[in-house]
């Protein structure tokens, strides 16, 4: 059987590569590579050789120009040694080949600022939404209930009933659209996959701390119309085993954490469609 292959990009301030790779392995990927951006820019590692790209959490370039801004600039403008192409061309090829990209936290910020999400009309390099400073003005590490839109095209959330419980860990997670029209279209096309909600996953909330950042419509994560590209502020890789749950010593929990299903669905999709 052909190999399912996932890649996690690290370097310049990415921090969650280890647990993201672990989640990919637990989700079922045959091979998982953590590649430093230097190894990609030097041509040693090529995105073309993988099916699932993880842009994960951290503080790219210290978020010095706003979260992930400097990396978005780097990815758009940096050239790959010896190939004569810019790195962004590898990304474009990856997307047009129908492959999967998951952006988590800083990775979501990166996708949004590169324009890879929500990517209306197949335009993957046009920014129309952003993630900015939390309304509370501070970094927050806390767990949140996320209501999942069952009607979304996301390939990652298939089979989730109600929602999932995950930690957020960010200072710039407030989801904002450039216009009412953008927000309406995101809602209409069911691209707002995750919304901060009450513990029963009944309704999205704007109340702090359930909504930790003041995101518009409580949006915590979105996908592109194809459902193959998705980004979210909460950390699915941080809840793949029950011991990561903040109340595991007092609640009866299944062995697997809520976040694992995203990686299982990714494996499943790759197996069916890409190998």
């Amino acid at each position: 059987m052909a190999q399912t292959r996932a890649i996690v990009i690290t370097g310049n301030g990415t921090n969650c590569e280890m647990e993201a790779a672990h989640a990919c392995r637990m989700g079922g990927f045959d091979e998982v590579v953590i590649a430093h951006i230097a190894e990609i820019l030097s041509g040693e590692v090529r995105l073309d050789d993988f099916h699932f790209l993880n842009l994960t959490g951290g503080f790219l370039d210290g978020d010095d120009l706003g979260s992930a801004k400097a990396q978005a600039n780097r990815l758009k403008n940096a050239a790959v040694d010896g190939s004569g192409e810019k790195l962004v061309e590898q990304f474009n090829r990856f997307i047009s080949a129908g492959k999967l990209i998951l952006g988590v936290c800083n990775g979501f910020q990166l996708m949004v600022k590169m324009g890879m999400l929500p990517a209306f009309d197949g335009n993957y390099l046009n920014q129309s939404v952003t993630l900015t400073h939390n309304d509370c003005g501070r970094f927050q590490d806390r767990w949140c209930y996320l209501k999942v839109d069952a009607a979304s095209a996301s390939v990652f959330t298939k089979g989730i009933s109600g929602g999932i419980y995950l930690p957020v860990r960010h200072g710039e997670g407030k989801f904002v659209c450039d216009s009412e029209a953008t927000l309406e279209r995101i809602e209409r096309e069911h691209l707002a996959v995750f919304k901060y909600s009450d513990p029963e996953y009944d309704a999205a909330t704007m109340e702090f701390p359930a909504n930790p950042n003041g995101a518009q419509n409580g949006i915590a994560g979105i996908c592109d119309p194809s459902g193959r590209l998705m980004g979210l502020m909460p950390h699915p890789e941080a809840f793949v085993h029950y011991t990561q749950h903040p109340r595991w010593t007092r609640e009866q929990l299944p062995e697997e954490g809520d976040g694992l299903i995203l990686y299982k669905n990714a494996t499943e999709y790759v197996r069916k469609n890409l190998v």
Partner: peptide, 22 residues
């Protein structure tokens, strides 16, 4: 404490906060 990321690297088992309301 909430301003400090206490869960990155994915290995936290006993966090700074516990209990019914974390």
């Amino acid at each position: 404490v909430r301003r400090y990321d206490h869960e990155v690297q994915g290995g936290s088992v006993v966090k700074p906060f516990c209990g019914v309301a974390n």
